Computed example of a mutant assay.
Amino acid sequence: MTERVIIDPHLHFFALNEGNYHWLKSENPPFWNDKSLIQRDFSSDDLYLDARFKLKGFVHIEAGFDNHYPCRELEYLSQSIKHIAYRAIAYLDITQPTGDFKKALANLTHYTTLAGIRDITEGEDATRLLAPNVASNLTLLASHNLIFEAQFELAQTPICHQLVQYCKTIPNLKCVINHAGLVTQETFDAWQANLAIITTVPNIWLKVSGFEMADRGYQAVWLQNIVDTLLLHFSANRLMFASNFPLCLFSKSYLKVWQDYQALSLLADTWQAMSHDTALHLYQLI
């Protein structure tokens, strides 16, 4: 049996007694009826794989540990993750005044594991990406060679155009769209049309992950359709498979996520790039 070495560029760990995790509390949104599945601590010890896979490293994405003091999450990671390579994406408000953004970013950059920031802008919050301070903050982020993780519905055409404009005017910015742009069956046509827009700039990457957020029972045929469509617009060196652990547990185990990716009909070089090489180079996981 051939062992496949993988890098997971999108997962989360929880330490409920140490962090705030406002969104994980039952009394706060999102009001998922299966939220109890993830209302516990998760660490690298929970990343169960079999002999077919070897996890070489991962990227930890901010999970609302403490949005007032995001350095606390980076400190927690530095104390709790041992014996495996990782990089971290921290929370930072992309709309705040640039002076405040600069100070907050300076605090985060004390941590050598920092790879970039995320500020979730799903649904109506996507209009925050149109805020007047975003361009200057992204320029500052790029000057530190840090990544902006964009999480919004790619079917939102005006936001898509604005993101492309940022990437054109800030050519050294690295932007990663999370969760395949949150595509659904209903938004597939608009999503596909907007893929053609974002592929025109070379500094946007995209993660294949998070399908359980829209459909707990999503099927392999849907995953294959999404990947096939992405590969019509992007080369494999701009695409990455990721787990969204532990939220993937809403649909399947960590192992099953990677088994399903392995089962896709893909060329070997394409699978290698999407499961390892793209993340290795983008996040500088060495």
Rank of each mutant, 00 (worst) to 15 (best):
N194P: 00
T200M: 04
F148D: 09
D119Y: 14
S143V: 13
Q192E: 13
P132K: 13
T184K: 12
L163K: 01
L182A: 08
A196Y: 09
R128C: 09
V176E: 05
T127W: 10
A115H: 07
T109I: 14
E124T: 05
L108W: 04
R118T: 04
P97L: 03
H179S: 08
V134K: 14
Y166P: 03
D100V: 12
A150S: 05
A126M: 02
E153M: 07
T200H: 01
N194W: 06
A155N: 00
A142F: 11
A126Y: 03
A135C: 14
D119M: 03
L173C: 07
D119K: 06
P171Q: 01
F152Y: 15
E122F: 08
E153L: 02
E153W: 08
Q151P: 12
V183M: 11
A106Q: 15
F152Q: 08
C167R: 00
N145F: 05
K168A: 06
F188W: 09
K168F: 01
A115M: 06
I120S: 08
F152C: 07
N194D: 10
Q151C: 15
C167N: 02
K174R: 09
N178K: 12
Y166Q: 00
K102I: 08
D125N: 15
A196E: 13
V201A: 10
L108R: 02
A135N: 14
L154F: 10
R128T: 11
W191E: 00
V134N: 02
T98C: 15
Q151N: 15
T121R: 13
H110T: 12
P158Q: 05
N203Y: 13
I198T: 05
V134I: 13
T127V: 14
L146R: 12
Q162T: 02
Q151S: 14
D100G: 10
E124Q: 11
K103I: 04
F148M: 04
V201K: 08
T157C: 08
T139K: 15
P171V: 00
A106F: 15
L154H: 11
C175G: 12
T109M: 12
Q192A: 12
G181Q: 03
S143D: 14
P158C: 01
L154E: 01
G181F: 14
N203W: 09
L129D: 02
L173D: 02
P202W: 04
A131I: 09
I197T: 12
V183C: 00
T113L: 07
L140V: 10
T157R: 14
L173T: 01
F101Y: 12
N133H: 05
A180H: 02
L140Q: 12
L195M: 01
A193L: 03
L163H: 01
L141F: 03
H144Y: 15
A126H: 14
I197C: 10
N137L: 14
T157V: 06
F101C: 00
C175R: 05
